[in-house]
Amino acid sequence: MELKESDIRKLSELARVSLEGEEVGLLDNMREIIGYFEVLNELKTDAVEPMSGGTSLVNRFRADAADWPCQGLGREDFSVKEGESLKTPPVFGESNA
């Protein structure tokens, strides 16, 4: 892709960094660097798992299922409930609940 000066301004806004007259220099550098990344298009990676960490250790997640067996556990420990909502007591002062 071909970066424009407006893209640099948008990126600097997203990154919370103001650029004071540095846009033109950065634009040239970033065009060249992003152009270099195109070399990765030579690779076929559809069937490749991404490597997200520094080791091959993987996180163990529960199944991404809606009917997780632990769902709702702990509700009975809350003294005040309002429909589906649970109320926690205030940290300071008296509870109005």
Binding site: F37, L40, L43, T45, V48, E49, P50, M51, S56
Partner: peptide, 14 residues
């Protein structure tokens, strides 16, 4: 196009 592609290419290097 960029970050995920790089993570996959990292797997190939490993």
């Amino acid at each position: 196009a960029y970050y995920l592609k790089a993570q996959k290419a990292r797997s190939l290097i490993k």
